[in-house]
Design a protein around this nucleic acid. Structure first.
Lengths: 213, 213
DNA sequence: CAGCATCCGCTTTGATACTG
DNA sequence: CAGTATCAAAGCGGATGCTG
């Protein structure tokens, strides 16, 4: 809880959420809503367990996180954001929007969790024909199945199993995002480990208009 | 340049701008445009000089900052943001927007620089009667004079000397912001060191509508 | 097993001093 | 002015141990 000691709005914000790992903890709580300590650990590969405990304590003291002692049937502590903590979302959105540019070249040793897809999908993909019935793309990458759906003129990702998807993407996240964003064409993506089934027009529909392969 | 090694847009952004002091350096370069090493030091009270040098090197390597060797008449190095660096602005805006809530209680040992007013003024103040001719408020706090002006339905702060301002605020930044935001009334602000001259209706005009004292 | 606390080697930070 | 050099202290990451 070191402070910059500057009477400046940005510095005051960073005093509370600028420590290493803190914004990523809030990312997890935003993406997964209320969850357990172990869920947070899973969603934050690389964090030391004492650091996670420390940060959660700090966040609780500062009123961004609330701790819920679930009743006997579950008998575990759950963590969730307070309203003030949820207000951090625009900061993460801005970071995500700026950070997607850094994802085009996936790094070899990067870890990955399925639910992280939410940011690039929302920031990068679109719906080129919003008046047509929505399309569904099943994505098999990481630890759990994800669904990408067109909605409200854009595209959203959520966890779940698609019934009768228009397309199915399987493989590592790099070529999957590469194909979805149009940075890679189908052949390039396949050569990097992607398996594709279904209708390519569903893919083309969500590709961003500007940056086409 | 430690990385989280997560294939996630937010983590990738934090890999580049998440280190301590980095976002505040970008704040300075955004607020002051191109400036010298010493100007940055002045705008970043508390930073160690080696850290500033390290961060500037990292930022340059990552393509966010450009170094300009000014020709003989000036004969000094200037730093400025690249387009990619300027794209960080929405992140700082989101942080500033969220962080102003932390400014209502100024801390005793906080340092202050006049140009930092830009964030709370833009985020907090408004123009309650945009159709009327604009008002000007001179602010004397910190090391240089600032002008607050209504414009485009809101209020902006910039460095400069006002000619014939509608009001003049002098004193520490806490009560000045307190009065401007309506958290303090004139008597409370005066008792905390504020000196006020001019027309209170100019102050009331920029006060936020929701949180009135 | 969930939820930490402790210990330890290493890196980063912050303060100061010094140099071209 | 624009940094580099040095060094103590704090923070971090990894491993392990403890408790309900």
């Amino acid at each position: 809880m070191r402070s910059y000691n500057q009477y400046c709005a940005v510095a005051k914000a960073l005093d509370l959420v600028g420590d290493r790992w803190t914004l990523l903890i809030i990312r997890e709580l935003l993406l997964r809503d209320r969850c357990r300590y172990t869920d947070l650990q899973f969603g934050l590969p690389g964090i030391a367990t004492n650091l996670l405990a420390d940060r959660l304590r700090d966040l609780e003291e500062n009123g961004l996180v609330r701790r819920i002692d679930a009743p006997p049937p579950i008998a575990t502590t759950l963590y969730e954001l307070t309203p003030r903590g949820r207000d951090v979302k625009p900061i993460l959105d801005a970071l995500g929007h700026w950070g997607v540019a850094q994802m085009v070249v996936p790094h070899e040793q990067d870890t990955f969790r399925s639910h992280w897809l939410a940011y690039p999908v929302r920031e990068l993909l679109t719906d080129r024909s919003p008046s047509d019935p929505p399309v569904t793309i099943a994505v098999h990458t990481g630890e759990s199945e994800m669904i990408i759906e067109t909605a409200g003129g854009g595209a959203l990702a959520r966890q779940g199993v698609a019934e009768g998807p228009d397309a199915v993407l399987t493989g590592p996240p790099g070529p999957i995002l590469g194909l979805l964003t149009g940075v890679l064409d189908l052949e390039q993506a396949k050569s990097r480990g992607l398996t594709f089934e279904g209708d390519m027009t569903a893919i083309r529909r969500v590709q961003p208009v500007a940056t086409r392969a």
